[in-house]
């Protein structure tokens, strides 16, 4: 699909459909909706050279009570997991704006994995949602 922010609403609806189809606990969708938004918007806004739209593939899989979300894009090599952690102790005035998305995912997901494969970025996030 096209890596543009306008695609986010449709992707979120698709994710909610996945939750309904597999009768997964609704409250567990939140972390994955968050992951989808943070990563997709990141790719759509930073993941390509000016004037070029990245192509993105998104998939969800349910395996033994664990959901895996995978995003692949054809933008320049970029490992979001290598970003430094934001300063969470900074005062209101000194808080950097941004850098929080990946931090949230690190804390809320069980596993995050980045790979650069055949000219593509692949980010996989996993979390057990059914015990």
């Amino acid at each position: 699909m096209r890596g543009v922010p306008a695609e986010l609403a449709g992707l979120t609806a698709w994710l909610q459909g996945f939750w309904d189809a597999h009768a997964l606990p609704p409250e567990s969708a939140f972390t994955f909706e968050l992951a989808l938004e943070e990563l997709f918007v990141n790719i759509a806004t930073h993941g390509a050279a000016p004037g070029r739209e990245p192509a993105v593939e998104v998939s969800l899989a349910l395996n033994d009570g664990e959901v895996a979300l995978c995003l692949e894009d054809d933008g320049p090599a970029f490992d979001p997991l290598a970003a430094p952690m934001p300063d969470l102790d900074a005062a209101l005035e000194d808080r950097p704006i941004g850098g929080l998305g990946i931090h949230l995912l690190r804390e809320m997901m069980d596993e995050l994995e980045y790979a650069r494969l055949e000219g593509r970025n692949r980010l996989t996030l996993r979390k057990r949602i059914v015990s």
Binding site: F30, E33, L34, E37, L92, E93, I97, L100, G101
Partner: peptide, 19 residues
């Protein structure tokens, strides 16, 4: 029902403007 880091940013900007 939902807030992302983009949403948090608007809280942060609002809190700063209020301060």
């Amino acid at each position: 029902s939902y807030v992302s880091s983009a949403g948090l940013r608007s809280f942060l900007v609002g809190a700063r403007a209020a301060k």
